[in-house]
Amino acid sequence: MTNEEFAERLDRYGANPGDWPREDRAAGLAFAKTDPGRRQLEAACAFDALLTETLVVPEPIGLKQRILANAHSRKDPMDLVSWLVGPLWRPIALAAAPLAVGFTLGFTYPETDSLEEAVAVIAFSEIEEVNGAASEEDL
């Protein structure tokens, strides 16, 4: 193992030999016994310790109670997603709903001879009714 390979190992896996890959851990440990290996390992240990000792996390006072209070009072805006991933009938029902509406509309409206007429019936029927009512009021 070369200096560079050992340095790369320490950068990838840190100074703890237990975290090194098993297949060539022995080679790494052997290199760590040489002078350059020992220096690199000591420096890597110091670096790991520096990170661990310096980055102390403050205690989150009262956080657990706030989470519990919110969990029991707040509704999740994404609740629909949770609902959908439940039993299989739920997504099927949601997908079938527009179909049902389509069939209902199709069977409710009067039969027409052409597509244009059918579109006109669906699109303008309410407006005609409104116009008709307005015209009667005008009279």
Binding site: P60, R66, I67, R74, D76, M78, V81, V85
Partner: peptide
């Protein structure tokens, strides 16, 4: 920020546990 994000994390766990 850490407390806000931690709170949001655990609220999601509660609300979306079924996922």
């Amino acid at each position: 920020d850490a407390e806000d994000i931690a709170q949001e994390t655990f609220l999601r766990v509660w609300h979306r546990a079924r996922t």
